[in-house]
Design a binder for these strands. Sequence first.
DNA 1: GTCTATATTAAGATAGAC
DNA 2: GTCTATCTTAATATAGAC
Lengths: 213, 213
Amino acid sequence: MNSSGNSTQLKPTARRIVEQAARLFADQGYDLISMRDIAKACDIKAPSLYHHFSDKQSLYQAVLQAVFAQQNAEIAEVFVTQMAAEEKLHQVILLSARKISSDHVFRQLLWRELLQNDPERMQFLAEEVMAQSCLQLQEILQQIQPNSLQTDSHFAITSVMGLLLFHFQLGAMRQYLPGAQALHQDVDYLAEQIFHMIKSGVVYAPPQRINDK
Amino acid sequence: MNSSGNSTQLKPTARRIVEQAARLFADQGYDLISMRDIAKACDIKAPSLYHHFSDKQSLYQAVLQAVFAQQNAEIAEVFVTQMAAEEKLHQVILLSARKISSDHVFRQLLWRELLQNDPERMQFLAEEVMAQSCLQLQEILQQIQPNSLQTDSHFAITSVMGLLLFHFQLGAMRQYLPGAQALHQDVDYLAEQIFHMIKSGVVYAPPQRINDK
DNA sequence: GTCTATATTAAGATAGAC
DNA sequence: GTCTATCTTAATATAGAC
């Protein structure tokens, strides 16, 4: 449930520092959080942090590593089962929705990274964090769609990411948008809706028609 | 094309300050931009800013007002035409895609606001910025879908927002994700794909089935 | 309206004792 | 490994001259 999971190969104190820092950075951002804030959350003084991390940037890097590492593990289980492809897609979206809606730290830090759009970190996120799930998702999608249609699987995959991330980042804005109801607070309902949209988008995709402005 | 449009009822100097501040805040964020940075961009000294705005927060508020005010105007034109509903949806998504992909300032500030998730500002964004387009979009969607199916229009609207925003915020990450091709850099192609996904999601939506975990 | 000079605060980081 | 004390820098903001 919590993202700052097994920060393996980190000493216990460093691990605690990273956990606290992750929470604070996710909530308020890199710039608003001072080394003193992090130290206070760990019940130590600021200079002690520098025994474990050379500077604030290094600590932030360690946070990203810890939070984003092995995100694939939980969801990967779905792929090895013997469900039909469509049901696999259903389960992957449901599990991802629960994960991303409950893991505030993961979601905020990802959103922040997309804001920064730093090329190196984007590459890290894409290849180390997302790639595995994406490739397996791609396989499922290609099983679902009839060969004749050949939809754009890159677009489908990124749309899954976008819908999952956006719907659970919408937060307080949702209630003020037209048609909002109580059921839109329900994670499983939103997952269901996302599943249907992706599925129909993949299954009923018309032949490509790029030039029809 | 640029977001910091008619900051009407602002004196010329204040208007220039807001424009420069908008660009800087969008790029680097509130905390990383100092009053000195803004002043330098305006070719004045920092204390002069305080003649126009009482403090940094007030200036930021003015920026949000200026950037987010009257976003609806451009897109609203589509709604009054005599196209078929489906073609209206197509055009709205295409124009919105072009707008949101080209207006870096608008997109970054919106992304930043969703990160902060401040209730008051979320209400402002939803009701003053988004509501008009959303209501008209809702009308189009209800014309498209067969009455018998009755899909969730709130979900459909927020999905349009999410897909538009996410696909153009993905930036440098996209190229590192599976299946990326050159055509995924093309705004009109992405708009086309988004249109198909929303349309099929609305048209082919199955009867609601909320309890089928 | 804009400037120079400055007050105030708080940040990142280091030195060196324990 | 953690601490106290401190250095250095840079931020917001104000006072008051022009």
